[in-house]
Amino acid sequence: MKSGSKLERILQAGHFAFTGEVGPPRGCNVQALKEKISHLKGHVDAANVTDNQTAVVRLSSWAASLICLQEGVEPNFQMVCRDRNRLAMQADILGASAHGIRNMLCLSGDHQVFGDHPQAKGVFDIDSIQLLAMVKGMRDDSAFQSGGGIDEAPKMFIGAAANPFAEPFEWRIHRLAKKISAGADFIQTQCVYNMDKAREWVKQANDLGLTEKASLLMGITPMKSVGMARYMQSKVPGMEVPEAIIRRLREAGKQNVAEEGIKIACEQIQEFKEMPGVAGIHLMAIEWEHRVPEIAERAGMLPRPEV
């Protein structure tokens, strides 16, 4: 075992993993955070805790991860390269591990111009691939990035993000390979809507033997409305929403559009369950945490296995 996290144990036992996501509040509203977490409890194996997502200041991801842990949901502590240099990153990794956080996801982070402090200086001391290698070095070699020794190494199951839809498509898979060779134990993808491209990408990952080296969790976000679908199609960098999805949502009618969105998500989850090389689902029900139990049930993900 690398960290002994529940997510690692689930994957190692060969179960199809199911992770969720929690966005910390824009303030100290712990009650609101606990409410979101309560919907995930028992319905997911772990919950990603986002780190100043979309470059907007929120309650810090390690602090929210700690609350998540206390509330009985295993956190997947997200860390972006935008806001911390290598000193702060390593300090937070040690702190998170010391508090019992056992999974982390290493990300570049959305550029600060998109957020609520567009005049901020982006740090980007190291990139997400170098972060993966740094965490692995800390865990496996008890060594800081500088090479100096660590007095009791942190225990982390290390995750990376992948976007099968960003350009250049033919080179995306090689960047995934780089992330895995740098140290990623598991991969969570960007939200998938274009299933043709996702199939092709998973096949490429299988062909390169990547899915044997790291566990692949495919990202799913149910659409709540046609407006949301249009927004994701045109405004979210690196997101690909086929017209067919938008047509299906529109044809469902205003009353049933959310239901149709959940139906599409469940169909996708079904297909991924059968797809060789896919080890689980990462469900990002953005501001829709209360629907997670229903989605998990309908997608046949319950009950979650005990490991």
């Binding site: 550029h111 980007f124 990139d127 170098q130 993000a161 960003a166 350009e167 250049p168 960047r175 960098p237």
Partner: peptide, 10 residues
């Protein structure tokens, strides 16, 4: 983002 191992997802 001064990424040394790019491109990023954006």
């Amino acid at each position: 983002k001064r990424i040394m191992n790019g491109p990023c997802g954006g």
